[in-house]
Simulated scan of single mutants.
Amino acid sequence: MKVGLYFGTFNPIHIGHLIIANHMAEHSDLDQIWMVVTPHNPHKKKNTLLDDYHRLHMVHLATEDYPKIQPSDIEFKLPQPNYTVNTLAHLQEKFPTHEFSLIMGEDNLNSLHKWKNYEVILQNHHIYVYPRLNSGEMDEQFVNHPKIHRIGAPVVELSSTFIRNSIKEGKNITPMLSSKVWEYVEHNLFYKK
């Protein structure tokens, strides 16, 4: 089975994330998309980051109607700080029959050369890249790389930061979240302060 790993804090998960994940599930050769919720780094103070459980729960709520998309808390169990290369090694050991790939925006691809052991990642895994506005010039070594696949997904310029700020300002952001996520955020009064 080919699994695309879509990493994020998902604070909160929004329709932009779902559009990208669903596009990858329906318009690439990936069989499933796992939304990997990245845990709070205990060494960093991040007041706006919700508890790991709440963010994971929102991903569950947002993806329950998408059979090819599922939440993953795999990184919650790994030592912190964690690196993607470690997560991939852990997943490959746990699911030896799966083929894991990464899903990332063009902007992240441009900084891939700064990742820990990025050569090992590229050697063992494919990367599916979705377009972003203003992602800059692509690093020359990645332009025609056989493991990097550019997928013409819709360009969605929507950020969780914008959503959090809008909620804090009392704006109506209901179209930007799945209805179940919006209800959960509203019920728990998240991002109001």
Rank of each mutant, 00 (worst) to 15 (best):
M1H: 13
V3G: 02
V3P: 00
L5M: 11
Y6R: 02
F7D: 02
T9C: 09
T9W: 05
T9M: 03
F10V: 08
H14K: 14
I15A: 14
H17K: 08
H17Q: 10
H17T: 10
I20W: 07
I20Q: 02
A21G: 04
M24N: 08
M24V: 07
A25L: 03
S28K: 10
S28L: 01
D29S: 14
L30P: 00
W34H: 06
W34M: 07
V36A: 00
V37Y: 04
V37S: 00
N41D: 13
N41E: 09
K45M: 15
K46I: 13
N47S: 14
N47R: 12
T48L: 11
L49D: 01
L49Q: 07
D52E: 03
L56C: 14
L56G: 04
L56M: 07
H57Y: 13
H57G: 12
M58T: 07
H60K: 13
H60S: 05
A62N: 10
K68S: 10
K68T: 07
K68P: 07
Q70D: 13
P71Y: 01
P71T: 11
D73A: 05
D73E: 05
D73G: 13
I74F: 06
F76Y: 03
K77Q: 12
L78T: 12
P79L: 15
P79R: 05
P79T: 09
P81M: 08
Y83N: 12
N86K: 09
N86R: 14
L88R: 02
L88E: 14
L88W: 03
H90Y: 13
E93G: 01
T97Q: 12
H98I: 08
F100P: 00
F100G: 01
S101H: 04
M104P: 01
M104H: 11
M104A: 09
M104F: 12
G105L: 04
G105E: 05
N108V: 07
N108C: 06
L109A: 07
N110T: 01
S111F: 10
K114R: 11
W115Y: 12
W115Q: 04
K116R: 08
K116G: 14
N117G: 12
N117H: 06
Y118V: 10
E119R: 03
Q123E: 03
N124T: 13
N124Q: 14
H125S: 08
H125A: 15
Y128I: 10
Y128L: 10
P131N: 03
S135C: 15
M138P: 13
D139E: 11
E140R: 06
Q141I: 09
Q141S: 13
F142E: 00
N144P: 14
N144M: 05
K147C: 03
K147L: 06
K147R: 09
K147W: 11
H149G: 08
R150A: 06
I151C: 04
G152F: 11
A153V: 14
A153R: 02
A153Q: 08
V155G: 06
V156C: 11
V156N: 06
S159N: 15
S160D: 08
F162N: 08
F162Q: 14
R164C: 04
R164D: 01
N165A: 15
S166F: 02
I167D: 00
K168Y: 11
G170H: 11
N172A: 05
I173G: 04
L177K: 02
L177S: 02
S178Q: 05
S178F: 01
S179L: 15
S179W: 11
K180A: 06
Y184G: 03
H187E: 14
N188S: 15
N188F: 10
K192F: 13
K192M: 05
K192P: 06
K193S: 12
